[in-house]
């Protein structure tokens, strides 16, 4: 059984000029793998991630035939039941640690809170777990970081703290929404390797949302390419450079390359037919 199964997912926002469909009927599944979702801004990739956690605020609507986590449908769940799902079964790491950590709470207390909400353990036990978790994300001086406030941390440290916090309730699925795009390239690799190691060790499924095609192609196992709310193509990540769809080809060709200099970059020519073509299934 797959960890996550999504069938015919729509995300709709009513506006003054009619309903805007951010995600338009996509289906995909996730096993114990690293699944990448790529696309431009506005393609619906982040909305897909948020919809799985049912984190779309009204008046936005999530409509799906099925969103099942390990076989259990979450579509009908109410907010209280969802709170048990978030963290314990699916967690999400967002783009910028500066905006997702609580600035007036120490790092240690935030991580302990995340653990205790789900386990009802004692403070001592929670502290032990939190320090262990900080060690797992390759933070050397755990005691100091535990007592520090988020503003005292660099971006890369902040993102590792986020990962620690998200993984401490031991979820089965991690959604990482552009987890490294606010970080420098040199720090990026560190954070990615930490995510990669933890996901492997714990047998988790990872959904990796990014606009960076090279990164996804080298980091993930399988890729969904999204365009205006639909999946236009799916492929094995290492075969991304052989992708067929003109949109994917256009994105790949518009990247400057160090190994193949080119005076002019190719500009993506959008075909209105891409928008209307039915969504490709991302199920296996």
């Amino acid at each position: 059984m797959s960890l996550l199964d999504v069938e015919n997912l729509w995300v709709k926002f009513p506006t003054r000029t009619g309903v805007f469909d951010a995600v338009r009927g996509i289906s995909f599944s996730l096993g114990q793998e690293r699944l990448g979702i790529v696309g431009e801004s506005g393609s619906g990739k982040s909305m897909t991630g948020r919809a799985i956690l049912k984190l779309i605020r009204p008046p936005g609507q999530i409509i799906a035939d099925r969103i099942a986590i390990e076989g259990e449908d979450i579509i009908a769940m109410n907010e209280r039941q969802m709170r048990k799902v978030r963290g314990e079964r699916i967690s999400m790491v967002m783009q910028d640690p500066k905006f997702s950590l609580n600035p007036v709470m120490t790092v240690g207390n935030q991580i302990m809170e995340a653990y205790r909400i789900h386990t009802r353990s004692s403070k001592t036990e929670a502290k032990r777990k939190a320090l262990e978790m900080l060690e797992a994300v390759s933070i050397r001086d755990q005691e100091r970081v535990f007592r520090a406030y988020p503003h005292e941390m660099s971006g890369g440290m902040g993102q590792r703290i986020m990962i620690a916090m998200m993984l401490i309730p031991d979820p089965r699925i991690l959604i990482a929404d552009e987890p490294t795009s606010a970080l420098d390239v040199s720090v990026q690799t560190q954070v990615l390797s930490i995510i990669d190691r933890l996901v492997k060790e714990r047998g988790m499924g990872l959904i990796f949302i990014s606009h960076d095609l090279n990164l996804v192609s080298s980091f993930c196992d399988r890729v969904l390419i999204m365009y205006s709310g639909r999946i236009v193509e799916t492929c094995r990540a290492d075969k991304l450079h052989e992708a067929q769809h003109p949109y994917t080809r256009g994105l790949l060709n518009s990247l400057p390359r160090l190994d193949a200099p080119n005076r002019r970059l190719e500009v993506l020519q959008r075909d209105p037919a891409w928008r209307d073509a039915p969504s490709v299934s991302g199920r296996i």
Binding site: V185, Q188, S193, D196, L215, F219
Partner: peptide, 16 residues
């Protein structure tokens, strides 16, 4: 340069 040439997971792991 190696970081921007695209990351290989094995490289990353050996990096640590």
């Amino acid at each position: 340069l190696s970081a921007s040439m695209g990351v290989q997971t094995d490289d990353i792991l050996s990096d640590l």
